[in-house]
Every structure is written in C-alpha cells, then in structure tokens.
Design a protein around this nucleic acid. Sequence first.
DNA 1: TTAATTGTGGTTTTT
DNA 2: CCACAATTAA
Length: 731
Amino acid sequence: MDVTHPWLEDLTPPQRRAVTHDAGPLLVLAGPGSGKTRVITRRICHRIACGVAPWQILALTFTNKAAREMRSRIDALASGGGRQPRGLVMGTFHAFSAGVLRQHAEHSAAAGVAGHPLKPDFTILDADDARRALKQAITEVGLAKEQWRPGYFAEGISKAKDRLHTSSEFASEGNEFADRQCARVYAAYERILAKQNALDFDDLLLRTARMLRDDESVRTRLQERFAEVLVDEYQDTNHAQFTIANAIACVHRQICVVGDPDQSIYGWRGADISNILEFEERYPGATVVPLGENFRSTGHIVATADALIRRNGSRRHKDLTTSLGMGEMPVISSLYDELEEASHVAGCLEASRDAGVAWKQMAVLYRANALSRTIEDALRRRGIPHVIARGTAFYERREVRDTLAYLRAIANPADDLALSRIVNVPARGIGATSMERLESFASARMCSLSEALVACREVGITAKAAKSVDGLMAVIARFRSELEVKPASNLGPFVARLVEEAHLERAAADYGDDPTDAEERVANVQEVVNAATLFALPTREEGARAPTLGDALRGYLEAATLVADADMVDPERGSVTLMTLHASKGLEFDTVVIVGLEEGILPHSRSIESGEGIEEERRLLFVGITRCERRLHLTSAQNRTMRGLTMATIRSSFLRELPHEHCFSGEARRTVEYDEELPQYPVGSTVRSPFFGLGRVEGVGSRGAVTIRFVTAGVRTLYPKFAKLEIVATR
DNA sequence: TTAATTGTGGTTTTT
DNA sequence: CCACAATTAA
C-alpha cells in the first residue's frame, strides 16, 4: 500500500491515524516537535487521494509562512505520486477573510456597517493606520487625550469586535461611564473607517464572521464550496475565527483542527483556549488523536519543558517523550548585566559553530523586541552573521509607508488616511494649519479629503499651498487613470515611475539628519519598487478576465499589509535568527539561546497580576524551550538598563521551576570579559568536552592542565591542547 | 504658516 | 531610550 501511497510512508501509528481518519470532526493534540505539519500536509494529500477535489479543501493557518511551507510540502508530495493540489485554498484567516469579503461584499448587506455598504476595493489598515484613525476618533468625540489613552479604546474595541459586536451593539451592552465613552469612540472610529472604505485587521474577521452568520446565501455557498476544513494552530484562534471555521464546517462536520493547548500564547490578542479545550463538546463524537512523541529535541530538553509546563494548573496533560536520547542539558547562566549577557550569547553561538553547527541552525529568543539591540550589537562586534526577524519592520519605516500611502491614495480615492499622510511628502509647504482647514472643509461639505484637495481653491489656504495641492492631485489623477486600462504586468514600472514623478527618493533622503541613514532610506524606497516588480497575483481560474494594473496594485497592497514577523524568517540565509518568543512558534533550531529570564521580562510585568497571565508566560517559555533540538542556553542578567535606567533584577521565578536533574546551572558571578590576559579556561567556567559532556573548571594546573568536574563523568584532569574543550560560559 | 528645537512621557507579544 | 508633542525661531 505504501508503495502507491507515498504520503503514508514513515508515519507513526498515531500520526497515521490522524492522517487517514475518514469522516467526522478530528482534533489532533500535537505536542511540540510531534510532526504536526507533517500530519496536516499528509492528511491533505490523503483526502485528495480519497477523491476530495483540491479546491474543496480549505486550510487555515496562522502565518503566511506556514501556509507557504505547507503548500510546498504538498506540492513535493504530489510530484512524488499524488494528485496535483490545484485550487487548494490555503492561507491565514485574515487573508482568507479579505478574499471572501472582496468577493461577496457588494452582494451582502451583512458586510456593511452603520449604513455604509462595504465596497470590494476596500483598504486594509495596519496597526499604525488604525491607531491614527483611533486618535482621530477620540478627538472627534471630544475626549481629552491626556486623560484617555488610545490603548484603552483599542483594547475595548478589539474585544467587542472579537465578540462580533458592532458599535451599536456595544453601546447597548455596558453602562459604566468608561464603557459608554468607549462605545462613542467605537462609533466614531467605525464612521471614519466606513467613510474611507477601510477595514482594520479585526474587521476582516468580524465582517466575515457576521456575514457567514447573517447571510444565508453566502454561508450556503461557502459550505458547498468547501467540503473539508483544516485549521492549524487551533489553540490560538479567537471567537471570530472559530465562528468562521465553524460556519463553513458545521453542516458536513468535516473539520480537522490541529494544535497544542500548551502552546497557546495569544490570549492577549483574544485567542480563546477553550476553542481547543472544548472542541469535543462543540463537536460531539469528535475523534481525538494525541501526538506526544517529540522528534525534535533531546531528552533533557523535553524533560525540562515537560517539568515546566506541568506547573500550569488549567491544562489537559499529555505525556511528552522523545526517543532521541538524553543529549545535553540546558545550560542556565546568570550574567552581570545585559552587555555581558550579550557577550555570553555570542560565546554560546561561537561554541556551537565550533562544534560544527551552521549559523542558520541557531536562534536567540527574547520576550520583547527591546531586548534585541544589545544582542545585535554584540553579534555585530564579534562578526556573527545574524538577521532580526522583524518582518514588519521594513513596512513600518516611514519612507516605505509613505510610498505605500501614495499607492493607496491612487488605488482608493476615499483613503483619506493615506492621502493625509502624503499631502506634504516631499515637503511642499502644506503644514498643520492648511491640513486643518482642508479637513474641516471636507467634514463641512460631507466629502472626502481628496475632494477637498481638488477644490482647494475654495478652501482658503495660501496660494502657494493650493498650487502644491493641485500638483499632487494631478499626479495622483494621472496615475489613477492608468489602473483599469493597463495590464497587471505593468506594476513594477508603474511604481518606479511614481517614485520618480512624486520625487519620493528626494523625500526619503530629506528626513532626519544622518546622511548614511538617508542612503538606506532611498534604498528602501527602491526596495518597494522591487517588491512590486516581483509581486505576482495568485493564478486565476480559467475564463476569468485578465487582471488589470488596478487588480495587481490592490493585491500587492493587501499582501504588504498582511505580512507577519514570522513570515520574513528565511532559513536559507546563513545567519543566526534573532526574534521574539512569539515569532518563534513553529520553528526549530539546533541551538537556542533564550535571554532575559528575569521577573518583569519573562514573566512580563504586564502579565504577573493574574494567574492566567503567568500561565501564558510559562507557555511562552515552553514554546521557546521546545524550539531547541540539542543545545539550549537560558540566560539572565543581574542588572539591566532599560529606557535609560539601570536596575538590579530578580531572577525569573520560572528558573526555579526547571528540574535540577535536567539542567546545568553555571555559577552566577562577575566576569571580566574584555581582559585578554585571562587564562583560557578560568576556574568556575563551564566547558563542554566531546567525550565527557558538560563540566565546570575546578582548578588550573601546570602546563595548562585543567581539572574539570563533569556532570556525568566525575572529576578529570585534561590538557585543553588535546581535549577540544569548548567554553560554554565563563564564570 | 512652516520647520526646527527642545521637552515630555510611556513602554509586550502581532494578524 | 525613543517617538511624539508643544514650543519657538524663521
């Protein structure tokens, strides 16, 4: 059988059960490193082999990267004997929802809000744009921004959207003063977005979920279209996402969800862990397949992770095992401050490199992005190639956002947010006062900002400013006129010409005062041109009309908005990866260093008030530990400088929860890292021998001999000249 | 009215 | 430490 079914080869019995499970709901509880991706991809191949058409399968993932990865694995399996998965729909909830909305928005009243219908060419606002719109809403409602933080409303609105409530439903919900203010801001925010035909990230899910709930024709169509639904990372889905998947799958009940409650780390974003914990209640008769065997990490690492996660009270326990042998113990080190921590990290990475591990097989993980800078500096000084996995960072840069804002203003005439961003880019003498007048003109006439700009002569701004505005609108109009007459293949040159004619390189060069940064900014603008040139629309079904330049532009803007940090991790590069613990989910590395194990950082100070918060932080560390295949280092600093203040730290309470018998604690004492004269293996440092494993240097004898107490091999005296010792940690 | 300068305040994680 | 806001100079 396996000869003709390559997708069933080398699966363990439980994996095979999950892959070949036939009818009815299926929950796969996949522990770390248990072959989760393998199960999903093989299952998709298997279902196709069983006669399900690829285009009837909907697979929802958490990141674009995961979707790409799975698709390429399926393609590879298919070329080895299976059927080509043409038409398989695979993507993030957000991207899928955007597609559904673009397709059905016009025909579904349920997609609109507050009397505004949603038009299919809507713009998707990223977090920054959403924040700007929110600030505007707060001002409109007339609340003093000294007393009300935007973050408060952002959270309230986001939670309401997750419950699928629009502003009017939210208003009838709470009666507290703060709730009423929040409802007012929500309503204003909704109006601002509706007027611009824009959606934020939460809206994509909210509108799709409501449409599926309220519009029977759309619901039926999607139910008929998708005979099979798979959801990856199910522990991190929120209520809206559950509603979407459930609405499509509830009739045929061919739903397979895969996840691990112990790796749920997005509770703060509304992820509802009960989606996975209560799957069997929601789908009676569901089959559950636990996958506990870990094929990634060696024994001490698995044991450490297991001991840690057992501390969580509310969990559904599954035994974690590995057959890879015990391997080496995780090494816990405490350093004097963040600078020494960073040097120590560099040392750990170099030691792994000396042991033959490629840079790309190593990662440094941290709780918050702010911790990356010191590490990055140290790696740069030591010449260790590295990349910071902040994928969105590129799209957050001012010059990049300006270029994209031009494109958005061209693509969507109602996009006031984009337009207001570029009105004075490059600086053309339109300041705050002129903008204020233009905006109040627009709101008085009930028209868009772009219409106000066209009519700027009537607004009463200076002649010079009006002339600049005319010039800008002429450029935008000219480019806009090309959208529906030219073919999609013209996107690259189109963007290049825009950069040229709108003088965006000059604008980029003019920011700030550092000429070296200026060069980089200009290069970033060119990078947008490159990205646009390389952008390819998904292949269309046969018989569809040829895509226009406008289609390509809208597609490109959507893709640029929906990128995630994790999407940009490129394992082919020969570099160490630096990223947040959150972004590391789903990845694996030979060597992993987790830094900043201190109270207030991990667990984070914002989480320690609640038991649930602490448990999520613990899961976060669990995720980090289980990324590691063989060499794990955990570090903390005794003093840390954050936002200009140096403070003594407290070691993370999680360190106490790690099992002594499976972890090696390097003594925490001050080192003099920078002194060249230090003996090569100072007393107290931690070393690794290829024969005896980890040990601590106890003494230095004549002719460079060192006495080492090994964890497993007792005390030995070795000559470093012959013994090939690597320093794991200086004391 | 705009552009540059100094001052202040606020901090997690991300589709 | 950094982004943003109010203030001041041009």
